[in-house]
């Protein structure tokens, strides 16, 4: 495994850093939902732009892996492109946009619509790993709360929402309980994606670079979105199917078409949408949507 880019190590990180991160990953898997502190390194991209996910991916990645990178569900958003290029350059690995072909999927803000399979690894970029952070800003306090499994604060917050609005007003980064023990931040994915974490066949790894934490959900692990008996957890629903591929029960992005209220709703997961269109599914606006939204039916 020779360096692909002169002067840098395979996948950028030096071996000692990789070992440190690998040890943290193993601990994270053994204690599902617990945030393992790690000495996060400066990366050549800024904190808050995926350094945690990048360090995790760099530490697990091997020459035979096939990498997919998404941001907002799309392979072609600028930050996803930049991270994919980084690994192409420093590790020379194969990359793909097809969820099913990937061995490692690094993501920001979405879980792919297509269920992940055994042997796949989903790496999340995490800005604020501490689910209790906005209720209690001090690490010393939140660490004790986790040690005691004292999560009353979170329930109080959710219940205050219900009292005020009639339902929980958290729409993304919706807290979950992992394997009946730790309350965990699923990263700012819309709560629509929370059910996909439950008993997933894939290993889910979470990296927070600036906050120096790694955590994990092993495959086949119960992940429960916090709720109340009289106010069960519910995900977002969309009135109309995707305007391009007619998919229902998927997360849709709202695209503003003009300044006269024209809107269309399209799949946030671009690979999912393109795969459906390639298979002949046609949404109501497929013929009329602007080219920069509809794109081509497939791309490599």
């Amino acid at each position: 495994m020779t360096p692909v880019q002169d002067g840098y190590n395979f996948a950028y990180l030096d071996e000692q850093t990789k070992r440190m991160i690998r040890r943290a990953i193993l601990k994270a898997i053994a204690i599902p939902g617990y945030q393992v502190p790690f000495a996060s390194r400066e990366m050549p991209m800024p904190y808050g732009w995926g350094t945690g996910g990048v360090q995790v991916t760099a530490s697990i990645l091997g020459p035979d892996d096939v990498l997919k990178v998404i941001d907002q569900g799309s392979d072609d958003t600028t930050n996803a492109v930049s991270i994919r290029k980084f690994f192409k350059k420093t590790a020379g690995v194969a990359t793909t946009t097809h969820t099913a072909e990937a061995t490692i999927v690094q993501t920001r803000h979405r879980i792919p619509e297509e269920p992940l399979g055994a042997g796949q690894v989903l790496v999340y970029q995490v800005p604020i790993p501490e689910p209790l952070r906005f209720l209690e800003p001090r690490e010393t306090e939140t660490r004790t709360l986790h040690a005691l499994a004292e999560y009353g604060l979170m329930h109080v917050k959710l219940y205050e929402d219900i009292a005020r609005h009639g339902h929980v007003a958290t729409t993304y980064a919706y807290p979950v309980e992992v394997a009946g023990r730790y309350v965990m931040d699923p990263s700012p994915t819309p709560k629509f994606d929370n059910p996909k974490m439950h008993m997933s066949a894939a290993l889910q790894l979470f990296g927070a670079g600036r906050e120096q934490r790694i955590y994990a959900v092993p495959p086949y692990t119960p992940v429960k979105s916090l709720d109340f008996e009289d106010h069960p957890f519910r995900i977002q629903t969309f009135k109309d199917p995707c305007a391009l591929c007619a998919a229902e029960g998927v997360y849709l992005d709202e695209v503003v078409l003009d300044d006269r209220g024209g809107r269309m709703m399209v799949c946030s997961d671009t690979d999912f949408c393109e795969t459906r269109r390639a298979a002949g599914h046609r949404g109501a606006m497929l013929g009329t949507a602007p080219a920069e939204i509809a794109g081509e039916a497939s791309h490599g």
Partner: peptide
């Protein structure tokens, strides 16, 4: 670099299963 990654990956898979 290659062999450590390969060994770790087996262990990571085993630890997660």
């Amino acid at each position: 670099a290659r062999e450590a990654q390969a060994a770790f990956r087996v262990l990571m898979t085993a630890m997660s299963r």
